[in-house]
Design a protein around this nucleic acid. Structure first.
Length: 812
RNA sequence: GCCGAAGUGGCGGAAUUGGCAGACGCGACGGUCUCAAACACCGUUGGGCGUUAAGCCCGUGCCGGUUCGAGUCCGGCCUUCGGCACCA
């Protein structure tokens, strides 16, 4: 059999056979423990790029590893197929989004198969299939029933480029996450999911093995703040309800010298005096023209206008002016603040610019609080200028003031979150239709479950007008009200595509179920996901939404457990050889198809895994490929050639020990997604085998065991060559269904150990001692060493440190 | 500005709890095979000193500290990358 290693001669053959034999089919009726390994399903952009390989090849290796460890592995694949690029292609090139998407899927499916990953293709899902999105609609109805989906008017993020509203999570630095257009604020009536109902629970990552980084990002995004809501009566006729503000520093309430409302605050119109009306209206109008980017800049001067009205401090009755300013955001807290310039940097800047009072209400060891302050300070000693609270130490101040506020009816302790409800309406075509009907008599009426799916109509004009293209399809829009039968109209907005991906992991467990999204039995068997792999860019979008979905589903009794994914691992971002993101315009694109053609799938995936830690990403330089190709060639020749004659017992023991060490290390590395070091260990074992053969051989049984172990350990990483070599050695098909080798500690035990001898911390000699040598024995040998004596110069050791089996340090 | 991660040969990167720095690979150099090239295989490869050799010194971003011993721990800086950023 010693023909040359030729990936093209073996890889397609095995891929076809695996597919035909259903080697990677996950069975519901299997007694082995289940293992659900999930890699984020791709968007069908049209071509599989290196980033896809970088995400999926290691995920595949990890899934194969678990399968060999005896798990019943579910490793599914599908396509996240709704979204703007399809629609943009329709607008720009006149192609049908459906055709564009399905064409891309077909191509990418072929490319994914050519990768040789062990996906269970029988469970493939496509989120734009009516079979799938009818269940997305079903979820919407369930959330609606539960009060978690609602329609409301709000200041929404509007992307002028995409001509649709966006969720807060899809706005980065005031720019649209997709098109980079500056986002505008528009008051619109939209559909929301009440994710804020789960804000507190979403902060808890207990029992989850998720990267610290993602946990921090989600916690920051949710942004929990503890404080109080305080009520300030407004001194103006016709406004009876007090002005409510949220503050994290209720203990500074005596220092409140002015109030600030967001310009969009609903009270603004009602409290503005005639004399100030013109200025206030001009300011409100000006604010609406400022982009979010500008408005959020902390560099910007703090502008604002006095409303002419005063509020009364509920603690001391002080009359304090009410201003409006755009540094206060209508979307956070109550949209209004009490400003305490002495102890808040922003309020201080505003007071300085507009000549407002500054009253310190805490003393400070380094600051003269009787002189005009030069800056706000937040850490104080004890309360001052605060009536009955004077002298209260800072540590007791907040509870004392809150207790008083609650007793007097001036406010209550409160927690506020930065997280906003998830805006899910989109004014675009290529998405899941929202299954709702608007009836003049009955209001908003859900489409009955039996009428799902609400099919997305075909043959539509796509030019974005700021309204969903669906509004123009009269025959689709006009329906009978399911409740009263009167003429009614369908909801024409579509769902945010993040809704498709919020529950797809649940559909994979029962992808063809026509009755329900999945059966309770398959849910219990497979869910939650054991290991989820994918990019970190989804930290506060998909990864937050899917947790919310799961918790809502749990509360509806649909799933069990608190979290959808037990363990999460984020791979890094793969860059071009020049260290920049791969892009056609830069000309630094490494095309997987080219690599595949040049070196085969095994080599390309191993090379991607070998370049460094998986979570680090970094530049991909194909110049390292020869190393992988050489290794695969050496692996081939080691496995292909017959065992050498002869057999030195010591050499056999050594090879066995090397093999066992490889089992131990590769197992640990794969468990921790350290593919780079796993491959290094496999290269070492390959070299050890080649050495053993050259230097006179080992006994046949040892040789065979080592070679076969090497093939088994290689199988998850380079599945094709492993299968080929396995077969050529006459072993039963398939190597991917064999048991993972077990590590046997006893076989690595060495009879002797090498001890490093240091004098004053510097290595001066090495000794070979019997394993388990005592300190006394080691010390005796070390002191007898000429090289050691040369450094101790006859002095008596002051101290000797012995690390058994490793090191002896003599201090003189 | 705040939070987090990282900084190791010419390059990608290794290094349990502090215990032989540079595993594995690329590249480079030398060699085997070959008419030659490709392929393949073998050897050397952190820097400096040492004619050879034995050996010695320096070396993990910078400065200092703890320790018998520091890439690893502590304090203070510098740089890079990621995230957040008027959130009251």
């Amino acid at each position: 059999m010693p023909d040359r290693y030729d990936p093209h001669a073996i890889e397609p053959k095995w891929r076809e056979r695996w597919l035909a034999d259903g080697v990677y089919r996950a069975r519901d009726d299997d007694e082995r423990p289940p293992w659900y390994a999930l890699t984020m399903f791709p968007y069908p952009s049209g071509d599989l790029h290196t980033g896809h390989w970088y995400a999926m090849a290691p995920s595949d290796a990890a899934a194969r590893f678990r399968r060999m460890q005896g798990y019943n592995v579910l490793f599914p694949i599908g396509f996240d197929a709704f979204g703007l690029p399809a629609e943009n292609a329709a607008i720009q090139r006149g192609v049908d989004p459906r055709e564009w998407t399905y064409g891309n899927i077909e191509r990418m499916r072929e490319q994914l198969r050519a990768m040789g990953a062990g996906f269970d293709w029988e469970r493939e899902i496509v989120s734009c299939d009516p079979e799938y999105y009818r269940w997305t609609q079903w979820w919407f109805l369930k959330l609606y029933e539960r009060g978690l989906a609602y329609r409301a008017g709000a200041a929404a993020n509007w992307c002028p480029g995409c001509q649709t509203v966006l969720a807060n999570e899809q706005v980065k630095d005031g720019l649209c996450d997709r098109s980079d257009d500056p986002v505008e604020r528009r008051f619109l009536t939209q559909w929301f999911f009440r994710i804020t109902a789960y804000a507190e629970e979403l902060l808890d990552f207990g029992g989850m093995d998720w990267p610290e980084r993602i946990q921090t990002m989600q916690r920051n995004w949710i942004g929990r703040s503890e404080g109080a809501n305080l009520r300030f009566p407004v001194d103006v006729a016709g406004v009876d309800e007090p002005l409510s503000v949220f503050t994290t520093r209720p203990d500074t309430v005596y220092g409140a010298t002015f109030m600030v409302l967001a310009p969009e605050h609903e009270l603004v119109g009602r409290i503005t005096t005639e004399g100030q009306r013109e200025a206030v209206e001009a300011y409100v109008a000006a604010t609406s023209r400022v982009t979010e980017v500008e408005r959020l800049s902390t560099e910007r001067e703090k502008t604002g206008v006095f409303t002419g009205t005063y509020a009364l401090n509920p603690f001391n009755g002080a009359r304090i002016p009410i201003w409006i300013a755009d540094y206060v955001l209508v979307t956070y807290g109550t949209g209004a603040i009490m400003a305490v310039p002495a102890h808040d940097e922003r309020d201080f800047a505003f007071a300085r610019d507009h000549g407002l009072d500054v009253i310190p209400v805490f003393d400070h060891p380094d600051i003269d609080v009787n002189a005009p302050l030069e800056a706000a300070f937040t850490e104080g000693g004890a309360m001052i200028n605060s009536g009955p609270f004077d002298g209260t130490p800072a540590s007791e101040a907040i509870p004392a003031v809150v207790a008083h506020a609650e007793a007097e009816g001036a406010g209550t302790g409160a927690v506020t979150y930065r997280l906003r409800d998830w805006l899910i309406s989109r004014q675009r075509y290529w998405g899941t239709p929202i299954p709702m009907i608007h009836c003049e008599a009955c209001g908003v009426v859900p489409v009955p479950e039996g009428d799902l799916p609400v099919l997305l109509p075909e043959n539509v004009h796509f030019e974005p007008t700021g309204q969903s293209p669906l509004t123009r399809i009269e025959e689709w829009v006009n329906v009978e009200c399911p409740q009263c039968g009167a003429a009614a109209r369908r909801e024409t907005d579509t769902l945010d595509t993040f809704m498709c991906s919020s529950w797809y992991q649940m559909r994979y467990v029962d992808p063809h179920n026509p009755e329900r999204p999945f059966s309770a039995g398959t849910m219990r068997q497979w869910l939650p996901v054991d290991i989820y792999t994918g990019g970190a860019e989804h930290a506060v979008m998909h990864l937050l939404y899917t947790r919310f979905f799961w918790k809502a589903a749990r509360d509806m009794g649909i799933v069990e457990g608190d979290e959808p994914m037990k363990r999460l691992f984020n791979q890094g971002i793969i860059l071009g050889p020049d260290g920049f993101r791969m892009s056609k315009s830069r000309g630094n694109v490494v095309a997987p198809d080219d690599q595949l053609e040049a070196h085969g799938s095994d080599a390309f995936r191993c090379q991607l895994m070998f370049i460094g830690p998986w979570d680090q990403g970094g530049p991909y330089n194909p110049s390292g490929m020869p190393g992988i190709v050489r290794w695969l060639n050496r692996l081939w020749s080691v496995a292909a050639e017959p065992p050498p004659a002869g057999g030195d017992a010591a050499a056999s023991r050594e090879l066995t020990a090397a093999t066992q060490r490889a089992i131990r290390d590769v197992t640990e590395d794969l468990d921790g997604f350290r593919f780079n070091t796993a491959i290094a260990r496999l290269m070492e074992l390959t070299t050890a085998l080649a050495r053993a053969r050259e230097s006179g051989g080992v006994d046949g049984a040892t040789w065979d065991r080592s070679v076969e172990t090497l093939i088994l350990l290689t199988a998850p990483l380079a599945p094709h060559i492993a299968e080929e070599l396995w077969e050529r050695r006459g072993q039963p098909y398939s190597v991917h269904l064999r048991a993972w080798p077990e590590f046997d500690e006893a076989l690595v035990a060495e009879e002797t150990v090498e001890i490093v001898v240091q004098v004053n911390g510097k290595v001066r000699d090495r000794l070979t001692l019997p394993a388990g040598a005592t300190e006394a024995a080691a010390r005796e040998r070390a002191l007898a060493s000429e090289r050691v004596q040369a450094w101790t110069e006859g002095k008596e050791p002051r101290r000797v440190i012995y690390v058994p089996g490793k090191l002896l340090n003599i201090v003189v």
